[in-house]
Amino acid sequence: MTAAAPPLLTVEHLTMRFGGLVAINDLSFTARQRQITAIIGPNGAGKTTVFNCLTGFYKPSVGRLTLTPPNNGGCFLLERMEGFRIAKDAGVARTFQNIRLFAGMSVLENLVVAQHNRLMRASAYSVAGLLGLNRYTRAERQAVELARYWLDRIELTGQADWAAGNLPYGSQRRLEIARAMCTEPCLLCLDEPAAGLNPRESAQLNELLLDIRGQHGIGLLLIEHDMSVVMQISDHVVVLDHGAPIAEGTPDMVSNDPAVIRAYLGAAEGEALPPDVAGGLPTAPPC
């Protein structure tokens, strides 16, 4: 087990209220470096709201979100940062439940835009770029190389000059992940990356995510409905129901937890699981 890995993101007492509605109630968990942490829970459990708090789209009502990037002594209090700074300075990248690509721009452009901040510095805030100085040209070539690396990884090199909106759905999902990776993050948050994918694409996705964890050594935070994805690749699972955490642990532990089963099935305690549903929560050893 890799449970001893240092913490990357520590969420403490996160609470989010919208008017009278409590979307998240006192949630605490830790995501570790080089691990895949999954947040699961029934519809409306507040999973996406956690992401939105994490990436600065909402300001949490209560709570502290601490990010401790590796090889960088400091730490960031995400709840105090402006949305774009969380991505720029803290290095948290995310994808969206309903894909948000720059649909009219080409695939390659999507990946180059993601490297905006580095390129801006290289172009001396456009001055060097306007003058056509060498240092910008070099930086742009590097950016294209990084994009090309990711294009190869997601098998879209041939479609690099297509409009992103014209890609098939599965490719769009992968492109969004590649785009997030082009920001060179230390934590990648994926909001239902397997939604709408067929089994083959879903297996490809698992592979990609494991590769990202293994080769790039970053932490992943995952919201997912597809249990085959969650159970096969995650190291650590947090289960939410009605905004409150109800269980936490390895996929094994979680899928056998009576509280989790109750939340998903609404079954009374002690009741046996129907076989078809039990099959929906397969127990696979964490990789």
Binding site: G83, F84, A87, D89, R100, F102, V112, H116, M120, G129
Partner: peptide
């Protein structure tokens, strides 16, 4: 024509396409 090919120009077009995505990529809108 020139600035369109610079990061700032691409960021403008990206902003036109989707501001939320831009923020998630660290672009100051």
């Amino acid at each position: 024509l020139r600035i369109r090919r610079l990061p700032i120009g691409r960021a403008w077009e990206a902003l036109r396409e989707d501001e939320t995505a831009c923020r998630s990529l660290g672009i100051n809108p």
